[in-house]
C-alpha cells in the first residue's frame, strides 16, 4: 500500500545549518504520527516544509504518490489539500470565528457563503464551539482559539492535517480540550502529523512515534517500542528528561 504522505531524503538548510538532514517518513491513510524531540530538532521546520511554507533543498515530498515538492509547483493547490495548525493559533483578529473558518472555502474553493455556512457551522457544533462562532478571537480563551484554528483548517476538507506544537502555548488545564479534538479526528480517519511535547498523548494515541534530533529521525516505531524500549541512547536521554 502506498503511503498517503511520503518524505524521501528531505533536506532543508537555514544558512549552513541543516535543519532537516535527510528525513524519510511514511504516513499512511488515517494514521496519527507524532514527532517528538527537543526544541530545535527540526519538527516545526519539517511540518512547514510539507505545507510548502519553506522550500526544501533536496529530496522529495509525495502526496498520494505525486511529488508536491517540485520547484515551480502551484503551492496553493497543495496547501488546499493539507491543513496546518500553529502553536500561536494565528486566528485573524479582525474576523469572527465563523468568518475565519469561511474565508478560505470562499476564496480558494470559490464556494458561496450560503453554500459553505451550514457545513462550517456544523463543524463548530461538532467541536463544542456553537455558541462561540460569532465572537472575535480576543473574546475566546486560548483553548477555544486553538479549536477554532482547527475548525478553520478542517473547513477546507483537507486530506492531511499538520499540527505544530498546538498545545504548547496553552495553560495546562486547557490542553485536554484541544487533544480531545485530535482524538475525535483520529476516530473519523483523518491522516495527521503532530509535532508535540505531550508525551502522554503521543504514547496513548499515536500509531507511530518519531524521535527527531539534529534534523534527523533517530528512531521511529510504535509508541510502545519507543517509550518502553528505546534503542538509541539519545532517545533514552530525551525521554528520561521529558518524562521526569
Amino acid at each position: 500500500m502506498t503511503a498517503k504522505l511520503s518524505l524521501r531524503n528531505v533536506t532543508k538548510y537555514f544558512g549552513d545549518t541543516a535543519v532537516c538532514n535527510g528525513i524519510d517518513l511514511d504516513v499512511h491513510d488515517g494514521e496519527l504520527v507524532c514527532l517528538i524531540g527537543a526544541s530545535g530538532g527540526g519538527k516545526s521546520t519539517l511540518l512547514r516544509c510539507i505545507n510548502l511554507l519553506e522550500p526544501i533543498e533536496d529530496g522529495e515530498i509525495l502526496l498520494d504518490g505525486q511529488d508536491i515538492s517540485t520547484p515551480g509547483i502551484d503551492p496553493q493547490s497543495v496547501r488546499a489539500r493539507i491543513g496546518m495548525v500553529f502553536q500561536s493559533y494565528n486566528l485573524f483578529p479582525h474576523m469572527t470565528a465563523l468568518d475565519n473558518a469561511m474565508l478560505a472555502p470562499k476564496r480558494v474553493l470559490g464556494k458561496s457563503k450560503q453554500a459553505i455556512q451550514p457545513e462550517v457551522e456544523h463543524l463548530f457544533d461538532a467541536f463544542g464551539l456553537a455558541d462561540r462562532m460569532h465572537q472575535y478571537p480576543d473574546q475566546l480563551s486560548g483553548g477555544q482559539q486553538q479549536r477554532v484554528a482547527i475548525v478553520r483548517a478542517l473547513a477546507m476538507q483537507p486530506e492531511v492535517m499538520l499540527f505544530d506544537e498546538i498545545t504548547s502555548a496553552l495553560d495546562p488545564q486547557l490542553v485536554g480540550e484541544v487533544l480531545d479534538v485530535l482524538l475525535t479526528l483520529k476516530s473519523r480517519g483523518m491522516t495527521m502529523v503532530l509535532a508535540t511535547h505531550e508525551m502522554g498523548f503521543a504514547r496513548q494515541a499515536a500509531d507511530k512515534v518519531c524521535f527527531l534530533q539534529g534534523g534527523k529521525i533517530l528512531e521511529e516505531g510504535p509508541p510502545k517500542a519507543i517509550f518502553e524500549h528505546p534503542q538509541e541512547p539519545a532517545t533514552r536521554a530525551f525521554l528520561a528528561r521529558a518524562l521526569k
Binding site: L53, Q76, I82, M84, F86, N90, L103, R107, V108, A153
Partner: peptide, 15 residues
Amino acid sequence: SQRAAALSLGLSEGQ
C-alpha cells in the same frame, strides 16, 4: 505568522 496561517489555508499572495 498571520501571513503563514493565511497561506497555509491555500490563499494566494493577493488574497
